[in-house]
Computed example of a mutant assay.
Amino acid sequence: MKPSQIPLIQQVAGVHGRSKIGSREVVGFGVNGEANYVDRIVSPFPAIRFKEDTPDIQALREKEKGDWKKLTIEDKKALYRASFCQTFSEMRAPTGRWKSTIGCAIGFMTLGWWMYVWAKVYVYPPVPQSFSEENRQAQLQRMIDLRIDQVDGLSSKWDYENNRWKK
């Protein structure tokens, strides 16, 4: 092998994760062709086995090649646990994560509310006097008296003879 090719091979091995799987057996394509282990209900076919082979597991694998009726339930469970971390029912089991999610959401909403109150008290100037109900009514009356938007606006909805809103 040429010295110029060595870095390229190391890069490829690092990208595909082959250098990080230890002595676990590569058994399939996996998700997106990466040699990693992921428990997923959607894609229940990890690329590598969950555990590294021990002498006990290797003996069970040799026994597995024969008649499966000779395997005990404990042997089958040990083989399954060597290849997979969780069963489907364990993957689907509720984790209680929703509690922390709701708690964090409520915490952030409370923090935002307190920031609004702080800004309302210490940052924003007082509301102008023109925002009072009395001043707003006076401004509305002035707009009607000046006949602003007489064709299709506010003044078109006012009955000037009876001094009330048109029905």
Score class of each variant (00 low, 15 high):
130 S>C: 13
70 K>L: 12
106 I>S: 12
16 H>V: 09
155 S>G: 04
150 Q>F: 13
78 A>S: 15
106 I>M: 14
80 Y>E: 02
2 K>M: 09
121 V>R: 11
66 G>P: 01
99 K>E: 05
116 Y>L: 11
8 L>H: 03
33 G>F: 07
11 Q>M: 07
72 T>E: 01
148 I>A: 12
52 E>D: 09
36 N>Q: 14
52 E>R: 00
63 K>Y: 03
116 Y>W: 09
159 D>E: 09
124 Y>L: 15
85 C>H: 14
81 R>H: 03
66 G>T: 03
87 T>V: 05
30 G>I: 03
98 W>I: 11
40 R>N: 10
155 S>N: 07
135 N>W: 05
66 G>R: 01
105 A>K: 11
103 G>Q: 02
25 E>M: 14
41 I>S: 14
57 I>W: 00
77 K>H: 05
117 V>L: 15
50 F>P: 01
7 P>W: 02
92 R>V: 09
160 Y>G: 03
49 R>P: 00
64 E>C: 04
120 K>T: 09
100 S>V: 12
1 M>I: 07
16 H>E: 11
11 Q>V: 07
87 T>W: 05
148 I>D: 14
100 S>H: 06
42 V>D: 08
96 G>R: 06
81 R>L: 01
145 D>S: 06
83 S>W: 00
105 A>I: 11
112 G>H: 05
22 G>T: 07
128 P>F: 05
72 T>R: 08
166 K>F: 09
26 V>G: 01
76 K>N: 02
84 F>P: 01
151 V>G: 05
98 W>G: 12
137 Q>H: 07
89 S>Q: 11
146 L>I: 01
6 I>K: 06
43 S>C: 07
146 L>G: 00
126 P>K: 13
44 P>R: 12
17 G>S: 11
4 S>L: 10
51 K>V: 04
157 K>L: 15
84 F>A: 03
39 D>M: 06
130 S>V: 14
161 E>V: 04
129 Q>F: 11
160 Y>T: 04
35 A>M: 14
6 I>M: 12
12 V>F: 12
64 E>S: 06
62 E>F: 01
142 R>N: 13
112 G>L: 13
163 N>E: 13
72 T>C: 05
50 F>V: 02
47 A>G: 06
75 D>S: 08
147 R>I: 06
65 K>E: 11
90 E>T: 09
54 T>M: 04
86 Q>C: 08
160 Y>I: 04
84 F>S: 02
98 W>C: 00
113 W>H: 12
163 N>P: 01
151 V>A: 14
104 C>F: 00
26 V>C: 04
22 G>W: 07
148 I>F: 14
166 K>N: 09
33 G>L: 04
47 A>M: 03
53 D>C: 02
29 F>D: 11
94 P>N: 10
139 Q>S: 12
9 I>G: 10
133 E>V: 08
64 E>G: 00
5 Q>P: 00
79 L>M: 10
31 V>T: 11
81 R>A: 02
160 Y>W: 08
156 S>I: 01
100 S>C: 02
112 G>V: 05
46 P>E: 00
27 V>Y: 00
54 T>L: 03
61 R>Q: 11
167 K>D: 14
152 D>S: 08
108 F>G: 09
43 S>H: 13
62 E>K: 10
113 W>T: 15
12 V>H: 07
158 W>N: 02
153 G>P: 04
53 D>Y: 00
150 Q>V: 08
152 D>N: 12
107 G>C: 08
83 S>L: 02
140 L>T: 12
9 I>A: 15
12 V>G: 08
137 Q>I: 09
52 E>H: 00
28 G>D: 07
